[in-house]
Nucleic acid binder design. Structure first.
Lengths: 213, 213
DNA sequence: CAATATGTTAGTCATTTGTCTAAGTCAATT
DNA sequence: AATTGACTTAGACAAATGACTAACATATTG
């Protein structure tokens, strides 16, 4: 298959094929032969590169989660207003559905429910995700003047994390009812918070707002 | 196995065994032989009663969702204050985790991602769930004096539905961080809404509040 | 060029899989 | 007690599975 390059290439070909099959048929229906066929490679190579299907799935998970965290970090670290980060994040909901990212992600989760080894890594990813979002939420909530006594940052982050997962789960099941209303409600709320913030800033010296353009 | 009773008994024995295996090993690791062993029944009976594993899973899903919807309906139809319904619903989050209900439920969902036939039924259950919750939320939000223009009932129901699913998903992966804070935040909020309601009622004639005890 | 490490192929192996059948058991009805 | 029908059993079958190996090809290095 991948003659010109080093060992890494064929390995990636297998991981790519595995991701495609996760989208198409789910983890339970992936066999060594099916994987080899999808990768356009020989059956024996699966054993040569990964040793077993179990190890292959671990590699798929590692590569996938690395990319996921990197993207998440990049998005929230960008120097743009919070509402734009939010909209970018919500945009991924649609984008990732079409690309099959979410199917891969949730197939790996379902696989991990029955493999303690994988669960550990999943939990780790989730912790990094929460940490990243928390870093963005803390300052944003302060800017917006939200009462973090009544609405702790940890609670808000947990709310966002869970309802995001729920939305994805719904969509994988073909359900979209209520999603648009929900996202619109939140967006409207953020817009009102932005407006309130701007008025407040104006109240105590508007040199900050006007000095920019 | 189940000699004394009619055909129904052995069938239920298989369905019970299937649920137990869904909890223990997941749908992907259930084979006809393993199922028969778990049920303490003969291998051939699987074919006799269900024809195939596919059909068996359909029966498991049907029985399970029927019970789920019935419970949900009963809970929200009870003539108690909304906050009590809410607390009962949140109580199920812990209860169902211990009993394995959530594992069964999500294994069936994961199975359905790759079986259009099952997806249909899942979506149907979800619609009934939303309908039931909406019936309880509409009146409650009105009582609490929430602005349903800014916070549409459909959006709030979708929020609750999705974050619930997300919490369950987290817990199946062994993650519980932030959940307590989130549930506490919501509970506090509901308590404050209850108080506000009581004060408002007092303001416009307190015969309603005092005439009770 | 020879030697060596790396990558690939075709094919084998023992198990396990889902499905199906023919023979058997047993209780209720006639 | 014989017959009927529902229920159960042991066993068989082809097909598919994961794991593995010995031989071959290729590229890299000395």
């Amino acid at each position: 298959m991948a003659k010109p390059d080093n060992r890494n290439t064929t390995e990636q070909v297998f991981l790519d094929a595995a991701e495609r099959l996760l989208v198409e048929v789910g983890y339970a229906n992936i066999t060594t032969r099916r994987l080899a066929e999808e990768a356009g490679a020989n059956l024996g190579l699966v054993h040569y590169y990964f040793g077993s299907m179990e190890q292959l799935f671990i590699r798929v998970l590692e590569r996938f989660t690395d990319r996921l965290i990197e993207r998440q970090r990049g998005m929230y670290a960008a120097p743009v207003p919070f509402i734009e980060k939010w909209r970018a994040a919500m945009g991924y909901l649609d984008e990732d559905l079409g690309s099959g990212y979410q199917k891969i992600w949730f197939e790996l989760q379902a696989l991990a429910w029955n493999r303690p080894e994988l669960r550990e890594r999943l939990a780790h990813v989730r912790r990094q995700w929460v940490a990243t979002v928390t870093e963005a939420f803390g300052p944003a909530m302060e800017e917006y003047g939200l009462d973090t006594e009544r609405f702790p940052v940890a609670a808000m982050v947990a709310l966002v994390a869970t309802f995001n997962e729920g939305i994805i789960l719904d969509r994988l099941g073909g359900v979209t009812e209520g999603h648009a209303e929900l996202l619109e409600m939140i967006d409207n709320w953020l817009v009102s918070l932005e407006e309130r913030k701007r008025e407040k800033n104006k109240g105590m010296g508007d040199d900050h707002a006007s000095a920019h353009s």
